[in-house]
Nucleic acid binder design. Structure first.
Length: 126
DNA sequence: CTTTTGACGCGTA
DNA sequence: CTACGCGCCAAAA
């Protein structure tokens, strides 16, 4: 077997992709799902929910399509997430939404894609 | 082995 | 602007 993400599980691919989001930028669940391929936005949400609390994955940079932070079961995590994003320079409007034109993640770089044989067919940003 | 349970997005009305 | 339905996977008990 290879070390490429090609044959990795869906969750593993999602985590790998989320891990590529640079500080100061945010991506949506649907965006990640589209890049992973054969995956829906909900899958990404499930993958985030399954993450351990002590993960290195920048889960806080993944928000919903409305530019808002998903309320999560309890609610304390959402506030923490906003604070982390603000600390990275992300700006929220009065409605608590992020402007994707300003902080949206364009996607992973091509070099990384080639390195991991990660090359879905229908990418809107390709 | 089965059942439960989650951080969603998009079209349509 | 709101409301509703549908699609889909993995881990834990």
């Amino acid at each position: 077997m290879t070390d490429t993400l090609e044959n990795a599980s869906t969750y593993q691919r999602i985590y790998a992709l989320v891990n590529r989001i640079p500080s100061g930028q945010v991506a949506t669940y649907g965006q990640i799902a589209a890049m992973v391929g054969s995956c829906t936005a909900r899958m990404v949400g499930y993958a985030m929910a399954a993450l351990p609390y002590d993960t290195d994955i920048p889960w806080q940079r993944v928000i919903n399509r409305q530019g808002k932070i998903s309320p999560r079961g309890g609610g304390d995590g959402a506030l923490k997430q906003r604070q982390l994003l603000e600390a990275e320079g992300i700006q929220f409007d009065t409605k608590g939404r992020v402007d994707f034109e300003q902080a949206g993640w364009p996607g992973p770089d091509w070099g990384w894609l080639a390195e991991n044989d990660f090359f879905p067919a229908d990418l809107p940003w390709a």
